[in-house]
Structures are given as structure tokens and as C-alpha cells.
Nucleic acid binder design. Structure first.
Lengths: 341, 341
DNA sequence: TTGTAGGCGTTATCAA
DNA sequence: TTGATAACGCCTACAA
């Protein structure tokens, strides 16, 4: 490591025998420069290994070319894939990412995280925190005072917010309709934690499909899990007990479905003969479950990319910042776990 | 969104009836300030919602309080968990993270990524890219010219580099020794892609254990996969064919193990009776595989935290920057897939 | 204990 | 087409 990053635009200018503004113009392309000097300056830049200091740039431009991303649950496939999408699109558009993680998405202090991001003069913020209980409360009141555009992921439509999400209700409906089509009639639900917006939506989709088909829904047809495999196992046990006629189950994510599958195997309940099953997420592993799991695939990467594109629009034109929720439609992936014959 | 973040340190000073340096001293604590004025200034800071601009700060301090993280494979459990560890430790130490992702870790252009990070005046860099083939080449020659300390993850010991890793060789050895203890004698290997350093090490550990136990190792006992479940399936098929006496297999990650399990089930090869199996990673799902998978657990979060602590040391005292590799020891998690009786 | 002034590296404005 | 110079917001000598 060389002791300092000495070389500044002044050094380049001196060495090239031009003024700093000329060097600046060569680099930014903001004003025309004679081809000869341009080439000469670039050569010196190369020779000296000059890298413009973004802090200084950001200071005068009032724009850091930086996006703040606040995320949670990166241990899970979906959220981390979305982050990948965000990064890809951002770097493609010339933005650098500043990452903050939240470890208790239902409670954690939002204000200080946003404040820190603003401190770094981010040009915009992507709020990739699932909506749980009242954790949008802070935003509902402070939103207008945040001096940077924000795009929300996994959110319901709020006044004045811009959001991008995958249509969980549609996904829940597709899963359930598929089970109906396959001849199952008494379809239970293993839900995610119902204070999660996404879990509510998947349940509502399940409900919609059943009602539309003329079936009654009942509280006894639902058990709540915590997204993790162990809870799926317990949930299926409970569900079978309180809904004895059940012949199929929609499980609100693949991890819980895996747990449910284990319980079924241990109890000699055969999937799909005795019990049809559909999951949600399409983990890379789902295809290799036993039996291979029918599930709902979400475009997790795409949602990240889309969020960045939306945010970039808001940055360029703040007038665009008007209430809207962009929904992507998930896709059913049919495998053995839902096909009786 | 208010149009601009108008309020600067000057505004605060004027409002409080003091000079800017006094405000600065209150905020940084770098020089004593009379309690009365301190309180008054803080009140104004609060009232005006003043947030010091980090770009300006970084410019004069020549330190952005920012760490660059370059990562890959975030879709996978291990890398994304490590990122979680990095973020936790960094935010605890007052650093903000700048994230860059690499999508083709064996080829992608390293130079421009590092350059961009330096442009943002990061105080240090965590290089969380697995070592594949010759992808450390750039660093081997340019390392000394990077004007910021770097800590490498998943790397072998190189002259002058500081690295943090989990001891894959030890993990491979533990997995294999366990199978030997459980009475298996002819232990095959489904390896990761052998241009990956980690895959080589796991193989070497497998080899060490077998040799120490007095067993011969042979090329026919190894098949290479690509870390994904599908390749595990194919690999086991091939392995059973070319190593017919095999009674157990060490699979270099859990995803491939899952694929292998499916193949075994389809072929009526019973695990663990006909074939013992040990995986690697301890995915949250592994406990729910059929049968539950014995595997090697890595402290993926801890490795991230450790890397940040090391980096912080290097930032504070560049003299510390001397060749060293810190290895964490992985841990065997015993489940049904390796217990014959 | 507090204030003044210079400078961090860059871009933008205004002249030339 | 180029050059001087004043910001950008903050910190830190140096003075008071």
C-alpha cells in the first residue's frame, strides 16, 4: 500500500501543462476540449493513475451517485437474490450501493438508519424490508421529510409511496387453483406469520380461489408457521388433526413445505396420493425435494432491478414521485407433489 | 421530499450564536466546549435536523468511514450469511458498507471494481470472492499499489496477504473420519469444481483421512460436480458405476448431497444402510432432508465479523499488514444419513 | 473556551 | 477552446 493517494487533478493539470478545469472537462465531458489536449491529458491520467475523488465530486455536485439499500433476511434465498438484482441494475446505471441491514425487521430503529444513509448523501433509497405489523408507521409520518426519493419493496399500496412487489395474492390464488384443477377439494393452508403482509396476501389468494370455486373456508383450515422448516412440520401435524378431511395443502413457502414433507413421510402420508402439496418461492432445492415440489416462482431478481429503475426515474424527475405500486406476476411451477395420478 | 437538505453547520452556528468551529467541536468532541454552549448547540442541531455531510467530512479527514465489500454468489446461503456478519460488525464499529458484486468470479474484471471503490475513498476492502483458478493473479501483482488495506476471504495463504477462512481441509477430514468411525470403509467423494480452492481443500481433507487410516485413494473414487443439486445427482450415478464397492460418500456441499439423495432414492439405494453420506455447509434445510443429513457446519457469519475486525486493525495500524491467514475450524453435525445401525 | 481563516479535491461560472 | 476563481460543507491550526 502506497502511503497516500497523492495524485489529484491539480497534479494532472500541472503535468499536462493545462488548467484544472481543462482536465475536469476532459474527464466529465461536460465541455468540449481540443482533441490534442484531450489525448494528452488522458495519457497523463493513465500515467499517474489518477482517480477522481468522489467525495469531492459529490460535494460540489450535490449528488453522490450512490444508492442506499436497506435490507433484511439475507440468509434467505429471496431477499439475497433481490439484492443481487439491485446491485446489477445499479452498477449498470453507474450507481454505487451503500448497504444497511436490519436484523429485527418488525421493531428496529428506522430513523437512525435513514439518517446515516442521508448523511452519506445517497441519491435515493431502496427500502427492502418486508412489511410486518406496524413497521411502516415511521414512514407514514416522516416520509415527506426524507430529502431523497424512496422505493419500497414488499409493501402494500400506501398514499404517496412508490412500491415494487410480487403479487402474493395472485400467487396464492394460482397455487390453490392448481390444486383444485388437479382434483383436490379440501385444501388447507400453512400460512406464514400473519403479521407479515406477504403472508396475509398469500392467504387471501388461497381464500379467493376456494370461495370462487364455491368452497367454504374456515379458521380450522389454517395454521400459522414462522417460515422455517420446523414450523412446517408442526403445522402440518396440527392441521391434519383439526382438518381431518383435508386432501391437499398450500404451504406459504418452500422451507415450511420441506418440514411438512418430513412429517408426512414419518406418518406414512403419501404425497401426492394422500395429500397434494404446493409450496412458494421455488428454491433451487425444491426440484429435488421428495417428491419434487410444485411451487410458485417469484422473479426475485427482476424485482430488484425494477426497483432501481424506478428509483432512478424518481431521482431524475422528482415529479414522478406519486403513489404507485408495481406488481409482478408470479408463475406456477408444476412438479410431482401436486399430481395425484 | 423537501427540495434540498439546506441546513449546514453554518446555519446551526448562526442560530446558536456561536462559530462553526464550536459546533464542529460539539459534534466531534475533538476539543472541549463549555457545557452550556454544548447543550444549546445540540438543541439547535436537533431542532434544525442537522446532519453532518459525510462527503465534506471525508474530504477533510481523508477517511470516509466506509468499507468496500466485493462479494459473489449471494444466492447461496454461505456467502450471503458472511455478508450479514460483515455488515453487523461494520455497523457496530461505525463503518458504512459499500457493496460490489461479481457475477463471474473466475473471470471478471477486478481492476475497475477496485478502482471504483477507491474512488469512493473506502478506508479498506474485504475481498469476499472465492479463489478460483488464477483469479488471484491481479492481486498478486497489483496488491502493493492498492492504497487501502485489504482482507481476503476464502483464500489460500499468499505472500503478504491477510486472509480469513474456514479450514476446508479440516472439514473434509472430519467428515471422512466420521464415516470411518461409523464403520464405512470405501468412501467416495463428490467434489466441488476442482479449480475452486475450497473444493481442492475438502478433497485433500478426504484424502488425508483415508490415507491416515491406511486406505488407498484412487481417481476412480472421485467425481466432480458444480455445487448444484443436479450435478450431485449425476455425480453419484457415475461414482456408483466406477466405484462399485463404495459404501459411503462425502459430498462437498449440501445442495449436491440433496441431488445425490434423490438419485439414491430413485435407485432404491438406502441411506444410510446401503450408502453413508455426509454433506458440507449445514444449510437450514439439511436437517429436513430425507434422511436428515450429517454435514459440516461452517461459521459463516463469524468469518465475516472476523474479517471486519482484522480490516479495522489494518486501517488503524498499517504496520499490521503482514502475511497471515486466520483459519476457523468447522464443526461436524451428526444426523441420520451417516449412521448405519 | 471560542472565533477566524485556510484548505480538502472537484466542478461551475465567468472571462479571455 | 482554455484559464482563473469561487463555491460545496466540514475540520483544524492558529489567534484571541
Amino acid at each position: 500500500m502506497d502511503s497516500r493517494q497523492v495524485v489529484t487533478i491539480t497534479d494532472v493539470a500541472r503535468r499536462a501543462g493545462v488548467s484544472v478545469s481543462t482536465v475536469s472537462n476532459v474527464l466529465t465531458g461536460n465541455r468540449p476540449v481540443a482533441e490534442a489536449t484531450r489525448v494528452r491529458v488522458l495519457a497523463i491520467v493513465e500515467e499517474l493513475g489518477f482517480r477522481p475523488n468522489r467525495l469531492a465530486r459529490g460535494l460540489v455536485n450535490r449528488s453522490s451517485k450512490t444508492l442506499g439499500v436497506v435490507a433484511a433476511g439475507l440468509e434467505y434465498y429471496g431477499p439475497s437474490s433481490t439484492l443481487v438484482g439491485i446491485e446489477q441494475q445499479a452498477s449498470e446505471m453507474g450507481y454505487t450501493l451503500i448497504l444497511s441491514l436490519i436484523h429485527a425487521p418488525e421493531t428496529e430503529d428506522v430513523e437512525s438508519i435513514v439518517a446515516n444513509l442521508l448523511t452519506h448523501q445517497v441519491d435515493g433509497i431502496i427500502w427492502a424490508i418486508p412489511q410486518i405489523g406496524r413497521n411502516r408507521l415511521w414512514w407514514e409520518r416522516a416520509y415527506r421529510h426524507v430529502p431523497a426519493p424512496v422505493v419500497f419493496l414488499n409493501t402494500k399500496l400506501y398514499p404517496a409511496l412508490v412500491g415494487v412487489d410480487i403479487d402474493n395474492r395472485c400467487g396464492g390464488r394460482k397455487a390453490t387453483e392448481h390444486l383444485l384443477e388437479m382434483g383436490y377439494r379440501r385444501i388447507g393452508l400453512i400460512a406464514g406469520p400473519l403479521d407479515w403482509w406477504a403472508a396475509q396476501q398469500r392467504r387471501d389468494g388461497w381464500q379467493d380461489a376456494l370461495r370462487d370455486a364455491g368452497f367454504a373456508v374456515d379458521d380450522r383450515h389454517v395454521v400459522e408457521g414462522d417460515w422455517k422448516p420446523g414450523s412446517g412440520e408442526r403445522a402440518l401435524a396440527n392441521l391434519m388433526e383439526q382438518y381431518t378431511e383435508m386432501d391437499a395443502v398450500f404451504v406459504s413457502n418452500d422451507q415450511m413445505a420441506l418440514g411438512a414433507m418430513r412429517w408426512a413421510r414419518d406418518q406414512h402420508v403419501h404425497i401426492p396420493q394422500d395429500l397434494g402439496m404446493v409450496g412458494y418461492d421455488d428454491l433451487p432445492e425444491a426440484e429435488f425435494f421428495y417428491p419434487p415440489l410444485t411451487t410458485v416462482r417469484q422473479q426475485v431478481i427482476e424485482v430488484g432491478k425494477l426497483a432501481v429503475r424506478e428509483l432512478a426515474r424518481l431521482i431524475i424527475d422528482p415529479e414522478e414521485n406519486t403513489e404507485r405500486l408495481i406488481l409482478l406476476e408470479p408463475e406456477l411451477v408444476v412438479r410431482a407433489s401436486s399430481q395425484r395420478r
